[in-house]
Amino acid sequence: MGILLLIIWLIQDLLYLIVFPGLVVAMVLVILLIYLERKIAAKVQMRYGPLYVSRKVGGALQSVSDLLRFSFQEFILPIGSDSIAFLMAPGFMFAFAMMPLIFIPVGPYYSYLFPSTLTILFSVALITITPIYAIIVGWASDNKFSFIGSLREAFLVISYEIPLLLSVIAMVIVYRTLNYIPAVAFQETHLPGIILNPIAALVFIIVAIRSTGRFPFDITEADSELIMGLYTEYSALFFGIGMATPYIELYALSLIFSLLFLGGWWPVSIHATGLLAGLFLPGIIVIIKAFIVMMVLVFLRAVYPRYRVDQAVRSGWERIIYLGIIAVIISILEVIII
């Protein structure tokens, strides 16, 4: 009996990791998001955007065809590169970008491979690992532009990780838990996090833009200076993985944002039961919220040029970090008052 339960538990976890909200849903959302990003930019820029692949549905299959093209393209290994690091780093990047999803519950009854009450801590900690591999990508390429790109990534990671942690700490102080499910429950009984601490939400959004390389912080891939930044020497599927990784990161960060600030699966109650209301509906709501956040973030491409690296680093140390500290202070005051 115990063995059967264990097997069911494992299957459940596998489904959770691979299908929903894990790999499959993430990839579908990313493909959809890349298409929508191009369409949004095209709308603002008075043009059509992707259209000719599957014209009847408005070019929706463009991203799929791009993925196919990346898959069948010739892969080129530069002679001077550190080939092992060059080949492995994108894979690790992708894997570590996916890993926070293990700890992000999209509903109250989702169990985990590693049951824990510290899910917020784990997911945020895992998010900060991906940039290390980004730096390795630039180093292994043996290209000056990639190398400059990875140096920029290193500078920016250091200056923006602390604000990220500060904004999460601010919310943890308010919710008095390091677990997502009680945090969402707290928002259900009180107010959504974005109203409780708007400064923390702002800091989190800015850091999300920064760490996924959206405009105006598209600094490591600045094409007019660094060609393709880190991925200058990459081709074929490895390039595709490199392209997709920031979007996966964006997905994870948007999920965290919708859980911490947008009330998670609110308006569905945390006490709801049954297959629909307890299992599927919360997940769908969380993902829709996260997708809206992602769309807002990709819309910025159409509005902003990019900052210079020193300006971004300076604003990280001189502005965003203070905003983060203010967010923590607000939370402490709230806790004292309430």
């Binding site: 598209d218 007019s224 509005v303 040029p305």
Partner: peptide, 12 residues
């Protein structure tokens, strides 16, 4: 525009 990364101004 495109040199500073603003594709919108480029297209406009």
């Amino acid at each position: 525009g495109i040199f500073l990364g603003s594709s919108t101004v480029y297209m406009w």
